[in-house]
């Protein structure tokens, strides 16, 4: 007997771990992966509610979240490549100027 609380608690824990990663890490790629982790936790919440409210809409939303995450990954990684070429490092603390 698994209740919805089990899944929601797990999603909350995963989201919190992702938040800690975004706040504490300095490597920009790791921070980006932690954002993906948070999106994944949200997806788990969506699927849980879709299941326990017996509505399909949650799964549709997850599909859209995944699409946006894919687009975000493409643009974000392109930005990371450009950033590392300009600054020569992946440290976000070095990216502290708006214009080179």
């Amino acid at each position: 007997m698994i209740s919805a609380t089990h899944y929601l608690t797990l999603a909350a824990i995963l989201f919190a771990i992702g938040t800690v990663g975004v706040i504490t890490r300095r490597n920009v790629i790791t921070m980006f992966m932690c954002v993906e982790l948070m999106l994944n936790a949200v997806n788990l919440t969506f699927i849980t509610f879709s299941r326990f409210l017996d509505q399909i809409d949650g799964q549709i939303f997850v599909l859209f979240v995944m699409t946006v995450a894919a687009a975000e990954a493409a643009v974000g990684l392109a930005l990371i490549v450009v950033l590392s070429r300009h600054t020569g490092t992946l440290d976000v603390d070095q990216a502290n100027t708006m214009k080179w």
Binding site: M1, I2, S3, A4, L8, T9, A12
Partner: peptide
């Protein structure tokens, strides 16, 4: 938030 949802009993309590 999860606890409130569970308490509201909007959905059936078990996956089975």
């Amino acid at each position: 938030a999860a606890d409130r949802w569970a308490a509201a009993q909007v959905f059936t309590d078990s996956i089975a």
